[in-house]
Amino acid sequence: MSRQINWPELLAALSIGALGAFMVLKGSELSLGSLKRMGPGYMPVAIGVALIGFSAGLVIESGFAARRPFPFSWRPVLAVSASMLFFAAAARPLGLIPATLGVVVLAAIADAPFRPLRAALAGLVIAALGYLIFVLGLRISLNPFWW
């Protein structure tokens, strides 16, 4: 029986191992201490070793994993990422309402028929409600606009 490599599963398993290796390397720069009196580096190294162990197990398991169809599209990923990054960058300098408008419109691109006008309208409604609830109601310190 020939067995093909299950790339997604294998890569996931390997990246867990890479994280483990990273923790061992970085952790060993801190003082390790002893079992009796553990230093700040003890736990990171121990966890890193455990991650490497699990990674090895998962690599073996990936050879047996059921191959499933793998639906993926970049559009939602990019749109949602852009939307959240926009909020992260714009909330302080531009204010809550422009930031919210941006979040909603950029997020709306993720879903196939993109209707800019409808998205902008929804954005304005959500921004107004958000201002009422979070700034006036809960007193989060954010200006509605940049002035």
């Binding site: 997020a107 709306a108 954010l142």
Partner: peptide
Amino acid sequence: LYPTMLFLICIGVYSVRGNGFDVGVTL
């Protein structure tokens, strides 16, 4: 529903420390 949820997530995370860094971590 989902743009509203995304907005709630953004402002929720942001409000904890008034910090855009956390929104990026959430993403």
